[in-house]
Design a protein around this nucleic acid. Structure first.
Lengths: 176, 176
DNA sequence: CCCATCTACTTAATATATTAATGAGATGGT
DNA sequence: ACCATCTCATTAATATATTAAGTAGATGGG
């Protein structure tokens, strides 16, 4: 994997106008110069973005049907496992920053999907839990989503899915 | 100014009480009961989200330093490879929907990072290309980002990275 | 040529992401 | 008890994501 390149050469390279017909016709490389920069769509962050999109496509129809966003469902799902959580804990579990979570909680509360109360020991903390309505909805919807998950897993193959999980866990652990 | 925070990714040692399932403790399942649901953070979409966050942590400091967002950089990077693109093509390459792209282009144009012109044959199409300022900036910044990429790759191992790419490509191909 | 239809882009409205700042409440040292 | 300092949640400001609606320009059939 070579990343080193001369900025100047790079600039010159951009002067080569590629025809832009939907395909990436990169067949005209006549130079014997150092390998060009990593191609745009070879980037891991971009692939992770696309992959996430592909997986969400399996679930979106169901969520859309019940009128919940991805993030709202993540919050409800986390609360289903933990009964009651502080805002901060919820944020960590759901990978949602606190300021975003505040709005999400407000909207879910307005729909009677959850309740908030203040901790008696520490008045700063807000404790959040599911309403009965949310529990019932969850019980109805989650089997359908599990079905979607199974479909997706089988379409790739359970082995590859497992392998992917392990690699993702390693990436997640990386510290910059 | 702390990036290392991203509290979202530090859910390693959260002292969130575990057990407490609503009545149905889940250590052992009856064979007749429906299988317990997948645990929350075993979900592939969530892992993909976290993994993307982890990878972006390697690049964010550099982007932040030059005052560009992730999406803005993606656009500039794509334009660096293709010289001139229609809005629609750019959207597809960058995985950004048209309405978002409109705003991103406006802001980048306001900073003199790119130029837009209308196609002469088809007045509907907008053609976008980098300004000289952007090309120079790109030439200066991209080597640093390539360095970040290399650091990340080595930290995981190039082999695993390659393996991950292949699995992600398979996921991306899945059709719902 | 006329018109229905389609396409590319934009606008609008709402939800979320991100960083900085604020306000109420806890905490420790003196 | 007093005060500087922290912490948690929220607000503010800006950028993006997402769906729906709108607008101008192409396109094909009658």
């Amino acid at each position: 994997m070579v990343f080193s390149e001369h900025p100047v050469l790079l600039l010159l390279a951009t002067d080569i106008d590629k025809d832009e017909g939907s395909g990436h016709g990169s067949s005209q490389n006549h130079s014997t110069e150092p390998p060009p920069m990593r191609k745009f769509d070879d980037s891991i962050p971009l692939k992770l973005l696309k992959a996430r999109e592909s997986t969400m496509a399996f679930f979106r129809p169901v969520l859309q049907e019940i009128g919940l966003t991805e993030q709202q469902w993540r919050v409800i799902r986390a609360l289903n496992e933990h009964h009651e959580l502080e805002s901060k804990q919820l944020a960590e579990l759901c990978c949602i920053l606190s300021p975003s979570l505040t709005g999400i909680i407000n909207r879910l509360e307005a729909q009677d999907y959850l309740k908030r109360r203040k901790s008696t020991e520490d008045q700063r903390r807000v404790l959040i839990s599911l309403s009965e309505k949310a529990k019932i909805m969850f019980a109805n919807v989650s089997p359908r989503l599990e079905g979607c998950y199974e479909t997706m897993t089988n379409q790739l193959s359970p082995e590859k899915m497992q392998q992917l999980k392990e690699l993702l866990d390693e990436i997640i652990k990386l510290e910059r």
